[in-house]
Design a protein around this nucleic acid. Structure first.
Length: 199
DNA sequence: TAGGCCATCTGGTCCT
DNA sequence: AGGACCAGATGGCCTA
């Protein structure tokens, strides 16, 4: 069996065609399962080259072509490592619906918000009232200079969740990012079961 | 069909 | 010199 056939199994290809199981999941899992499959194959091993025109460095004979191929291989491996790290990050983020996979940007935003929420949780539960962590080096959303952050702040404002005991169903807030459609998590002050392992 | 997301290739730059 | 990192380009797949 050719490497190509091994990498893009018919099962996975079928799965790709079945709605929810997206191509990106199938593709990444296929590669996860089989390493990088060796070949300078294009995405999903459908085409020879992922990026459009014929690979200019792919003149296997000449030294330049060989260098280019080696560089491509390293770059592929580097990106796979990066994706593995993102997967590891996804795996420790809470309460994703099993069939949902955060995109890369969503994962990063979610992680940032989640860290912030945990920091807030620690701060709120500090019986002595001083910050569990030095606020000078822990960025609350408000202290992040990026304008982008304002749009993705997990709580509309810190007072929203705050310490007002007003948290209820309405205090579900998005940690996912700038949109609120898909994933919300229970506010840290609402005290449900999930909440327990935030602490 | 358009837009989003992704993997890959590629050349440039920086570092060791 | 060679490797790591980066950003742009490209095309495939999926969803609305």
């Amino acid at each position: 069996m050719s490497p190509k056939a091994r990498c893009a199994s018919s099962e996975l290809q079928d799965a790709v065609r079945l709605g929810r199981f997206s191509a990106r999941n199938a593709a990444s899992e296929a590669e996860d399962a089989s390493g990088n499959c060796g070949q300078p194959a294009g995405r999903h091993h459908v085409t020879a080259v992922g990026g459009g025109e014929a690979p200019r460095g792919d003149q296997r004979a000449d030294p330049r072509g060989r260098r280019r191929m080696k560089a491509n291989d390293r770059e592929r491996h580097r990106m796979h490592n990066l994706n593995s790290a993102l997967d590891a990050l996804r795996s420790i983020l809470p309460a994703l619906p099993e069939d949902a996979k955060l995109t890369k940007i969503e994962t990063l935003r979610f992680a940032r918000n989640y860290i912030w929420a945990l920091t807030e949780t620690l701060r709120m539960h500090d019986p002595l009232g001083h910050a569990a962590a030095d606020p000078s080096h822990l960025s609350s959303p408000a202290s992040v200079s990026s304008g982008e952050w304002d749009s993705v702040s997990p709580y509309g404002s810190s007072a929203d969740c705050g310490h007002t005991n007003s948290c209820n169903e309405a205090s579900w807030k998005t940690l996912r990012g700038e949109d609120s459609e898909a994933f919300c998590f229970r506010s840290i002050c609402s005290g449900n079961a999930r909440n327990s392992w935030y602490l």
